[in-house]
Amino acid sequence: MFAQQLANGLVLGCTYALFALGFTLMFGVLKVLNLTYGFYCTAGALVALAVAGIPGATLWLALPAGALAAGGLAVVVDTLLLMPLRRVRAPELSALMVTVGAVLLLTSLLSMGLGTEIRRFPPGMLGTGTGGAVVLGPVRLAWSQVLIIATTGLLVGALLALLHGSRLGLAIRAVAGNEDAARLMGVSVARTMALVSFLSGVMGGAAGVLLGLNFNAIQPYMGESMMLHGFAVVIVGGLGNIRGALLAGVLLGVTEVMVAGYVDSALKDGVAFALMMLVLWLRPAGLGGRVVAPRV
């Protein structure tokens, strides 16, 4: 049972990390706590669901479609709501407030339009049937779970390679480090920011599709209900820290499963907040991150 619980924790942790990757990237580079991020996740899942309804469509069509649509949405939101504030150098809390309003607006509209009923992808989208599972000794994993672990690993690797092994990554890191200096060095800050928005949206959308596939519960609030875990991963892992996000996600997932499996399932929902407050008191920079100190 312990091995299975560890696997459960790893899978759950990977869903948290997967969800938080785009969030932490956006936060680290754009310096904005963007609460509409959860909505990108929902939008990705819903678009993929619509595509999956087309006869003959497979996951390999639905997943990119959902991810790209969410990326597009992220660019639109950023351009309409955050660019104007950046232009007048509004305080960082103004940007946060705009996204607070936007997320309420968007999710309420969506739930009025679609209803709050849950939906699921057609069974067998992975081409493995419904009952398909990988059995490794005492551990059973569904194919959707294997896919989540693989995608999380792949995305973390790809992001690190992009950030540390390409000119584009250098530009992104330059903007993250010091916007004005980056501009002086000839980096197009606006373009880089739009690109980071797009990348974050794509990752949020992809996470939404995979979460929808694994949990079979696609509904307008699915992304919003992941946000608390997203915050916890970002704070515990360190703002904008990709490796930290993976580490923090898995730590959170395993802790939750162990608490639910061996202590009391009623305490599971308190784990994220407890970890977050513990880190804020003891190590505000996060497990592997850097401090974002006041601008004074």
Binding site: M1, Q4, N8, T15, L211, M222, E256, A260, D269
Partner: peptide, 18 residues
């Protein structure tokens, strides 16, 4: 075992029950 209305992951509880 308990869970929250918004929860989507029940693996810990179900593994224990199994």
């Amino acid at each position: 075992e308990t869970f929250g209305a918004k929860d989507t992951d029940f693996s810990a509880q179900l593994t224990k029950i199994k």
